[in-house]
Design a protein around this nucleic acid. Structure first.
Ligand code: MN
Ligand code: MN
Ligand code: MN
Ligand code: MN
Lengths: 221, 221
DNA sequence: TAAATATTTTAGATTTGTCTAAAAATATTT
DNA sequence: AAATATTTTTAGACAAATCTAAAATATTTA
């Protein structure tokens, strides 16, 4: 596997994240995501196309190639392992890890990352509940259900949060909702779309529509 | 403290190491150390002078300014903490850590480094026996004595090794000489300048002049 | 001390990644 | 189907870091 510049890696990872939603990514979307200008995106897309990391025809948007997808998984693996390290070992909070991992992810020494993985005990998910690709690029694609869509009285595990701000963290900590916790939805209110939730045998409590929209769960352990 | 580019940091750190020996550093010395060309060094020296990180007049060589020295200590702190992490936590060997730390040292997030320091238990020396500057830039300047100069029958502690190759590591591991181990010199032979060494109450053994020249010790614990 | 040699700096080019402004292509309205 | 608006690309410029070749300066040698 070749080595790519920090800038190339940031573009590749951003495309990886954006193309999950739609099928292809547009110049403006990517420029917006990376806080850069459309002209810069076009320049980089030409370069990544030459390196065969993506499919791109002028004005048609772009997608990662098989090779580009593999490279992206490597970057995501490094990013999430470092996030796990920061949260678990260095006691960073949940909302602080992303920014630091954004730099650490670009140190691409295979042995470093595989030993870090081992040191951490081969974690499956990062502090935001997102799956960590293994050394071979395998990634668990568990389908996440938004809390707004979870059927009533079905126990599910909180597996991720889509918003990573310190504001949502404050609220989640106050409500004692962490990744991995089991909960069920007891009731939905039509008026404000608020949701009544219960964790284990504790008394049920209410969370807002806004919060519920950002919490994802999955079935099973 | 401002932020500097990876390239600027590599130059600053190299000057820091070179100026310990002599008083001022020359263009060729630095170009050689960084495996770059003299013209590139001159360009960077002009830039670092403008940033007030060093004293430099054309043709006169250069030294770090007080400010440049502080910046260098920060880089060295990061480098050596990562080296300690790699050796202690990830079980890298001694001769592998430098290369990886060379990249990790450029992730300059104050909180990351201070938390890493805490996680590691505030280590005083890196895996090569070199002192780690603390969060305020304080560094222990213990005077190292080369094993060739240690008086006979004086117990001293192995505190560093000047050569960092895997070849010297192989030999040191075979002879069971590690950083922190206590030893004394029992005899010196005029013929080949080999040295007879004893660790604790174990039987004495001989090491070559070449090896002794690369081992440094200090008195006390 | 003058010539030869070595070191250092300058001049000019190159690569990478970015930007602004203008042109071209595409999409949306009327 | 034009006209209008939006998106994307191109053209040209710029900063950072590097290089080669030539010029300037310093050091050594005879
Ligand atoms: Mn990044
Ligand atoms: Mn994450
Ligand atoms: Mn470095
Ligand atoms: Mn070291």
């Amino acid at each position: 596997m070749l080595n790519y510049s920090t800038s190339e890696e940031n573009y590749i990872k951003a495309i990886f994240h954006l193309q999950r939603q739609d099928n292809t990514v547009t110049t403006n979307e990517l420029a917006n995501e990376l806080k850069t200008k459309p002209a810069s995106v076009t320049d980089m897309m030409k370069k990544l196309k030459i390196k065969k990391l993506l499919h791109y025809e002028p004005y048609q948007g772009f997608r990662l190639s098989i090779e580009g997808y593999k490279v992206a998984l490597g970057i995501v693996r490094r990013h999430r392992l470092w996030e796990y390290f920061l949260a678990e070992k260095l006691k960073f909070t949940w909302d602080e890890v992303h920014e630091v991992a954004e730099d650490l992810e670009h140190v691409s020494n295979k042995k470093l990352i595989d030993k870090l993985d081992e040191f951490l005990g081969f974690p499956r998910v990062d502090p935001h509940g997102d799956p960590i690709p293994d050394a071979h690029g395998k990634i668990e694609i568990s389908k996440k259900i938004c809390l707004t869509d979870l059927p009533l009285n079905k126990v599910a595990v909180v597996s991720g949060v889509s918003n990573q701000s310190s504001e949502i963290l404050e609220l989640l900590e106050h409500k004692k909702i962490n990744i991995g916790i089991k909960l069920e939805v007891k009731k939905r209110f039509e008026f404000d779309h608020s949701i009544e939730v219960r964790i284990g045998r504790q008394p049920a409590f209410t969370i807002s529509k806004e919060l519920a929209e950002n919490i994802f769960v999955k079935y099973g352990s």
